[in-house]
Simulated scan of single mutants.
Amino acid sequence: MPIAHVYLIEGRDEEKKERLIAEVTDAIHRAVDAPIDSVRVLIIEVPKEHFGIAGQSAKKRGR
């Protein structure tokens, strides 16, 4: 059972997250021939102030 962990800065809408889950699932299925039903995708949303980019939080960088 392949499991993908995807870390994102919070704020994307449900439609985008659903599309991401579908596309990551399909990519894993194609890459390793895993049955679609066995693929798991976990989206971990990180608050902007907890996500660092080049020494600053994403919030401070205006992301």
Rank of each mutant, 00 (worst) to 15 (best):
M1F: 10
M1D: 13
P2C: 00
P2W: 00
P2V: 01
I3V: 14
I3E: 05
A4T: 10
A4G: 01
H5C: 09
H5G: 10
H5Q: 10
H5F: 14
V6P: 11
V6Y: 02
V6D: 06
L8V: 14
L8M: 15
I9N: 03
I9S: 06
E10H: 03
E10W: 01
G11A: 08
G11L: 04
G11F: 00
R12P: 06
D13K: 12
D13I: 01
D13A: 14
E14R: 13
E15K: 10
E15G: 11
E15P: 02
E15T: 12
E15D: 15
K16S: 14
K16V: 06
K16W: 13
K17E: 08
K17H: 10
K17C: 13
K17M: 09
E18T: 14
E18W: 04
E18N: 11
R19Y: 00
R19V: 03
L20C: 08
L20K: 01
L20M: 08
L20D: 05
I21H: 02
I21Y: 00
E23Q: 15
V24H: 02
V24T: 12
V24W: 00
V24G: 06
T25A: 05
T25F: 00
T25L: 00
T25Q: 02
T25E: 04
D26Y: 10
D26W: 08
D26L: 08
D26A: 13
A27V: 13
A27R: 03
I28R: 03
I28K: 05
I28W: 01
I28H: 00
H29Q: 11
H29L: 01
H29M: 08
R30M: 10
R30V: 13
R30Q: 15
A31L: 05
A31V: 03
A31K: 02
A31H: 04
V32S: 14
V32R: 04
V32E: 08
V32D: 08
D33L: 07
D33G: 05
D33T: 11
A34Y: 02
P35R: 12
P35S: 06
P35H: 04
D37Y: 09
D37S: 14
D37W: 07
D37R: 13
D37Q: 09
S38E: 10
S38I: 12
S38F: 12
V39G: 02
V39Q: 09
V39N: 00
V39P: 00
V39T: 07
R40M: 11
R40W: 12
R40Y: 06
R40H: 12
V41T: 04
I43L: 14
I43K: 00
I43T: 11
E45T: 11
V46E: 04
V46A: 05
V46P: 05
V46F: 06
P47R: 09
K48C: 07
K48R: 12
K48A: 10
K48Q: 05
K48I: 05
E49I: 05
E49K: 10
H50F: 12
H50L: 10
F51R: 03
G52H: 08
G52I: 13
I53N: 11
A54E: 13
A54M: 06
A54L: 08
A54G: 05
A54T: 06
G55P: 06
G55T: 10
Q56A: 15
S57F: 02
S57N: 03
S57E: 04
S57I: 01
A58G: 01
A58M: 05
K59C: 07
R61M: 15
R61T: 09
R61F: 09
R61A: 13
G62R: 07
R63P: 00
R63L: 14
